[in-house]
Design a protein around this nucleic acid. Structure first.
Ligand SMILES: Nc1ncnc2c1ncn2[C@@H]1O[C@H](COP(=O)(O)OP(=O)(O)OP(=O)(O)O)[C@@H](O)[C@H]1O
Ligand SMILES: [Mg+2]
Length: 963
DNA sequence: CATATGTAGGTTTTT
DNA sequence: CCTACATATG
């Protein structure tokens, strides 16, 4: 109860006349449209306090709505500063939260929803996924990646629901569209309509309702049920909405309905059109026009005194806003007198890519050194994936940070291990999952025994589980018994009990406690258990296996279990979107380069027929500019906009277009010191450079020389040393993919084709296709998968045969195998044995042509040889490797090599790219191989990882390195 | 100037 | 796997 009144009084007295007018205008509709930092949120919260003070309405009678959760939190925090604990009894909600609260309180009005749970994003994705997999679709179900469109479908359905368009309405609308105009687009929309219908049915069946339903149903019911509307209307005497520029039409309607019994409802709407940044999400730019038209007598208040920023920042933002195409009112805001310092907008082009995070962190360090509180500094970026290097750079300097972007607890090593443990315990009959489990130290299985068990399984073609069960080595027997127990528990007990057992009775807990960072890990485990609890509350009858499916779904759709943000007081890292409504002394807008922040390409996979698409491009730029505007205006004292001048590959980057739209007289260029290699980093890498001895190195080395080496091994090693280690050296079982099955069936058919051709027999397309079909028929595929594989394969094959049957070569060898070609290793007494199987060799004058079939989509010549950015050069390396084999073997001279694509290109042609491979190419490859093979023989890759931070093999490597 | 081919890149948010 | 843009080719 301390100084509530006086806080209010102090703040109230500080208000300027226009602000005071807004706070005092308690009755009737009021609209405040004003720029950033003019005190809109301040006025809104003070107005709530004023209502409580001047009327006998209690906190429960006030409803404050905003768009984001963080908006709710910020509003409540500010209110609590003014009125103390009563702030927690004021109804402050997001629109979704409010809809949900009404639905929970008055379920009888919501028969569609009664007894249902909310569907979160992952539920929607899984339902759509199931609908797609179960249906015969073409346009939105590519063979190579049938789930490719799933997330776009969910997005499109969200849009449709926002526009209040049911599946049948959408289907009807589609019938009015001319298919011929764009058949592809049309087909995608047609299949979208089918999936949309299936999705809605699935939602009902599973008793779920999604975000769209919350709003849609509330609107529908408020329109139909006057009784409920009356109840709510009586309950909420005062309605306030902050950041209203981001509301969409349905949310507008909710506000309007709640005030509909009065001509002049007590409706207080606050916002700034220049800060509208959620148009992509359906926000309408005309919210304020709409309300001013709806309530012609509304008091309209504009504010132009800014209490946040320096004049420089305000002028910079103002000049930026003037570049917008659309005509919003652009008032030049006035800063407070004491806030006129110069040099508050700084441009920092960092010369080298990769140096930007460290540069920004060093600037942050300087500020903190001068006494700035880290919590008053923010780094704003365009997308969540920009964050990690900046967080790392701060951490490297020991600067605390609070990360607004979600980080995934499952990615942390200890949780990744728990995942392996759970998967192995539940699916011990799955060789791959069991193999990963065997890599965990808690199994008590020493390294050499683990390698031997894997080798035994690969040689005998027995399941790994059987190999383990029959093993006579004591540690294997002991673990085998424990595993059976873990398995039985995980299959029978309920989810929380299973996980509890696995954590506490498997040795996992002891490992966490003995591990590197027990406190941190235990906190992340806590977040994980919270998710388990949430899940089992919703699916009380689910077992661990179901939960694992759920986790896999999260993984495939790139979603995460968020980590609770660590305490307060650190430098704040968040997306520009997330910064809306907040303020900081120092703001760093990072990665502000063209094509990233501004100049982004928009790609919409579904072009829905309804909204007009004429001005979309322009709108995109303006939307993005407003986002930049929001980011700029978060700053009280100084904003630094940084970008790097070159990208990772040395290409030049241009600054964001918005930088040049700022009046250049207001921008100061930072002088960036030439980067010196930081002392700390060098000493760290010295520490890394002292490798620990690799356990069972001799065994692994022997295994390597025995195994031999192929071009697949080489390509895998170059992609990731650990991939080679697990897949090719240890032969950890891999799930056979649809692609592998398809590819080998195709190869079998082509073998038949060329065999017949070489014998001069008549080629019957039907017969070749039958070979393919027989291979597919035998393979473990679901009925629908089989049908799809057959359809695609038949089409490809018949086209291929038609194009090639005239010129089938006579003098050939099919699947020409070369084994055991010796390759001496420098500095080693042993030789490595090289192997390879050549799809086809064709005898030409004085030598052979080597051909390799590829079932995937065709690649350009540059992509094959590895000259493009994304290319791995695998195909090219394959051809050179074959030349090396043939040269060493000495039987045939390789004239040329070719890559033959078995899928037609978009024009229906089957492309073959032919190359001549020179002796220089071979000697280049030989040098690479010397390096690679020596690295393998000496296991010097042991402390390396590949460039993919999510690499499954590197993750597994971390696990085995612990034991 | 029209068409073909090659290449890079692929959000932001709401319970 | 799709699409927009840049570059090459007729
Ligand atoms: N009359 C005033 N005197 C002193 N400080 C004020 C006054 N009005 C607002 N402020 C302060 O100015 C800052 C910006 O206010 P506020 O966040 O309410 O602005 P806003 O209009 O909501 O901005 P945004 O559009 O970014 O959400 C806050 O720190 C607030 O406390
Ligand atoms: Mg605000």
């Amino acid at each position: 109860m301390r100084s509530e009144k006086s806080t209010f009084e102090t703040l109230y007295r500080a208000l300027n006349p226009r602000q005071r007018e807004a706070v005092d205008a308690i009755e009737g509709p009021v609209i405040v449209i004003a720029g950033p930092g003019t005190g809109k949120t301040q006025v809104l919260t003070l107005r709530i306090a004023n209502i409580l003070k001047r009327t006998d309405v209690g906190p429960e009678g006030i409803l404050a709505l905003t768009f984001t959760n963080s908006g709710v939190a910020a509003m409540r925090a500010r209110l609590a500063e003014i009125i103390g604990s009563a702030a927690y009894r004021v109804n402050i909600y997001t629109f979704h939260g409010f809809a949900n609260a009404v639905i929970q309180r008055f379920p009888e009005y919501f028969p569609r929803i009664i007894g249902s749970h909310t569907a979160d994003r992952i539920d929607s994705l899984r339902l759509v996924e199931r609908a797609v997999l179960a249906r015969r679709l073409k346009a939105i179900k590519p063979f190579g990646n049938p789930l490719y469109y799933v997330s776009s479908v969910v997005k499109a359905i969200e849009t449709l629901k926002r526009e209040n368009m049911s599946p049948s309405a959408f289907a009807a609308l589609l019938r009015t569209v001319d298919r011929a105009a764009n058949p592809k687009k049309y087909e995608r929309n047609r299949e979208l309509a089918l999936v949309y219908r299936a999705y809605e049915e699935a939602l009902k069946r599973e008793r779920l309702y999604d975000y769209g339903d919350m709003i849609m149903e509330l609107v529908r019911v408020l329109v139909a049920e006057r009784e409920l509307l009356l109840t709510l209307e009586e309950e909420y005497q005062y309605i306030l909405a902050d950041e209203h520029q981001d509301a969409n039409q349905a949310q507008n309607t909710i506000l309007e309905l709640l005030g509909s019994f009065h001509d002049e409802p007590n409706l207080f709407i606050v916002g700034d059109e220049k800060q509208a940044i959620y148009q992509f999400q359906g926000a309408s730019l005309h919210n304020f026009l709409y309300f001013t038209a709806r309530f012609p007598n509304a008091k309209i208040i504009e504010l132009s005194e800014n209490y946040r920023s320096t004049q420089n920042i305000l002028d910079a933002a103002h000049s930026l806003a003037l570049s917008a195409k659309e005509r919003l009112s652009h008032v030049r805001l006035k800063a407070q007198k004491q806030r006129r310092q110069k040099e508050s907008v700084i441009l920092a082009p960092v010369p080298r890519s990769g140096d930007e995070p460290d540069y920004v962190a060093s600037e942050v360090e300087k500020l903190i050194g001068k006494g700035t509180n880290p919590g008053d500094i923010a780094m704003l970026y365009r997308e969540n994936s920009d964050m990690p290097p900046f967080a790392a750079a701060l951490a490297a300097r020991g600067i605390p940070s609070v990360i607004g972007s979600e980080t995934d607890v499952l990615k942390t090593p200890a949780l990744a291990e728990l995942l392996i443990l759970m998967r192995g315990a539940v699916h011990m009959d799955d060789d791959r999952k069991l193999a990963e489990l065997l890599c965990l130290p808690l199994t008590g299985i020493p390294a050499h025994l683990r390698y031997m068990l894997l080798a035994r399984a690969a040689e005998t073609h027995m399941s790994l589980y059987l190999v383990l069960a029959r093993a006579t080595e004591p540690p294997a027997c002991a673990f085998s018994r424990r595993l059976s127990h873990l398995n039985a528990v995980s299959l029978t007990r309920m989810l929380p009990a299973s996980i509890d057992f696995l954590v506490n009775e498997s040795g996992y807990r002891e490992e966490v406690i003995a591990g590197d960072d027990p406190t941190g890990t235990i906190q992340k485990l806590g977040d994980f258990f919270a998710e388990v609890k949430r899940y089992s509350a919703r699916h009380p009858d689910h077992k661990l296996a179901d939960f694992l499916d759920y986790l896999s779904a999260l993984e495939t759709h790139g979603l995460s279990i968020p980590e609770r943000a660590e305490g307060r007081g650190g430098v704040r890292l968040m997306t520009a979107h997330g910064s809306k409504g907040l303020e900081f002394d120092y703001v760093f807008i990072v990665r502000a380069f063209h094509g990233h922040f501004g100049g982004r390409r928009v790609r919409e996979r579904f072009d829905l027929p309804m909204r007009g698409s004429a001005l979309r491009e322009e709108i995109g730029v303006d939307d993005e500019r407003r986002l930049f505007y929001v980011a700029l205006t978060r700053s009280r004292r100084r904003v630094t906009v940084s970008y790097s001048v070159s990208d990772d590959n040395g290409g030049t980057l241009l600054p964001s277009q918005f930088i040049s739209e700022i009046d250049s007289r207001l921008v100061k260029l930072a002088s960036i010191p030439e980067k010196k290699v930081p002392q700390a980093l060098t000493s760290v890498s010295y520490q890394i450079a002292a490798p620990r001895p690799v356990p069972d190195a001799e065994y692994l080395k022997a295994l390597f020389f025995e195994r031999g080496f192929s071009v697949t091994h080489l390509n895998n090693y170059l992609a990731c040393p650990w991939k080679y280690f697990f897949v090719n050296l240890l032969r950890i079982p891999e799930a056979k993919s649809k692609h592998l099955i398809y590819g080998s069936a195709m190869h079998a058919a082509l073998k038949e084709l060329y065999d017949r051709g070489s014998r001069g027999e008549r080629v019957s397309a039907a017969r070749i296709i039958r070979i393919f079909e027989e291979n597919i028929a035998r393979a473990p595929l679901s009925p629908l998968e089989r049908e799809e594989a057959l359809g695609k394969g038949k089409r490809s094959l018949s086209g291929y045969i038609a194009q090639h049957r005239a010129g089938l070569p006579k003098d050939i060898r099919i699947e020409y195998a070369i084994h055991g070609v010796p390759f001496p290793l420098e500095g080693e007494s042993h030789v490595v044995r090289l192997n390879g199987i050549l799809d086809r060799i064709t005898f030409v004058s004085d030598g052979v042509l080597v051909s390799d079939y590829k079932t995937g989509a065709h690649k350009s010549r540059n992509e094959i040889v590895g000259k493009t950015k994304r290319a791995d050069g695998n195909y090219w390396r394959q051809l050179v490797f074959y030349k090396l084999l043939l040269d060493e073997q000495g039987t045939f001279k390789m004239r040329e090599g070719e890559i033959a694509f078995v899928e037609p290109d978009e024009k229906g042609r089957y492309r073959t790219e032919r190359f001549s491979v020179t002796p220089e190419d071979v000697s280049l490859l030989t040098r690479t191989m010397q390096e690679v093979l020596r690295a393998i023989a000496s296991l010097s890759f042991w402390d390396q990882t590949c460039s993919d931070p999510d690499c499954e093999y590197c993750r597994l490597a971390k696990v085995i390195k612990k034991s």
